[in-house]
């Protein structure tokens, strides 16, 4: 196995690959030799498509609103017109418009399900026969809310729990064709969409260190993660390194969910600051 070209000769589809976490996943795949088809609502994703095309020729951006059935179907057709093989489908798209359950109307609930769940179902149907030919695999980005959750997340958490269940069903149905399906459940990840911006943060290392030391989103002693961590989890699952891993949910959450209670009153010793600085710089390495 060539570990520096884990996806040599493969073709991958990454939804919402133009910005944030999806962009990281696509860049990682492209660096490992995969041709990447990314989509996104915002036409500015063309720039990311061009960048990917430079790393891995043949990659491109296709505009698509994952909440609309016609858009998803047209995206699938456009991809299949451009390539005769698909090895991996990675679904990164997801929205969370949180509020208390009695404040969320049907429309918002439905929109969440359309984007987070129906999008995946349509993709799976559309690419199923292609993946059968290549013994390919699905990776669905879910969340730690698929298992444990906190308030104001009912629409999001229910759609993501369904995502995990759907992945297990795909794993069961796909096994006979060699199709694998896995889930990555990110915890607190500071991606460019969530925070002031990945690249800006990298320039302000003291701020980055503060974020790490606050320990938001992960284990109090381990801090929050970066999009790199999710990209590496996807890379592992997409490659032959995980040839026998299917139906699994990888909790990439810095330990946020395995603790039985958030019991520790968290105070990072000040002499840890140097260590944290180094640690966070390392985490945000591109």
């Amino acid at each position: 196995m060539k570990y520096n070209r884990l996806l040599e000769g493969k073709v991958a589809v990454i939804t919402s690959g133009a910005h944030g976490m999806g962009k990281h996943v696509a860049v990682w795949y492209a660096r490992h030799g995969a041709i990447c088809f990314i989509n996104g609502r915002d036409p500015s994703g063309v720039e990311t498509g061009e960048m990917l095309n430079e790393i891995s020729p043949g990659s491109c951006f296709i505009r698509c609103d994952m909440s609309k059935r016609e858009d998803v179907e047209s995206f699938i057709n456009q991809v299949l017109e451009r390539t005769d093989r698909i090895d991996n489908v990675t679904n990164v798209v997801g929205i969370n418009r949180s509020d208390l359950t009695d404040q969320v109307d049907d429309e918002r609930f439905e929109y969440t399900q359309q984007v987070n769940l129906y999008g995946i179902i349509r993709l799976a149907r559309g690419f199923w026969s292609s993946l059968k030919k290549t013994r390919g695999n699905f990776i669905l980005i879910s969340t730690i809310h698929s298992g444990a959750t906190f308030g104001k997340n009912s629409a999001y958490a229910s759609s993501k729990s369904a995502t995990n269940a759907f992945a297990r069903a795909l794993a069961v149905e796909g096994a006979q064709y060699g199709i694998r399906a896995n889930v990555v459940c990110p915890g607190g990840i500071y991606s460019s969409r969530q925070q002031e911006g990945y690249f800006e943060l990298k320039n302000d290392i003291e701020k980055l260190t503060d974020i790490g030391m606050r320990g938001e989103g992960g284990h109090p002693d381990y801090g929050s993660g970066s999009s790199n961590d999710i990209a590496n989890a996807c890379l592992f699952l997409a490659s032959d390194m995980a040839a026998h891993v299917t139906g699994a949910a990888i909790m990439s959450d810095g330990g946020a969910t395995f603790q039985s209670h958030k019991f520790r009153d968290f105070r990072t010793p000040s002499d840890y600051r140097d260590l944290w600085r180094e640690f966070m710089l390392d985490r945000y390495e591109l």
């Binding site: 992960g218 993660g225 961590d229 592992f236 990888i250 909790m251 395995f258």
Partner: peptide, 10 residues
């Protein structure tokens, strides 16, 4: 590659 994954089972 797995540095954000702790206490997990694969």
């Amino acid at each position: 590659m797995s540095r954000f994954i702790i206490g997990d089972m694969l």
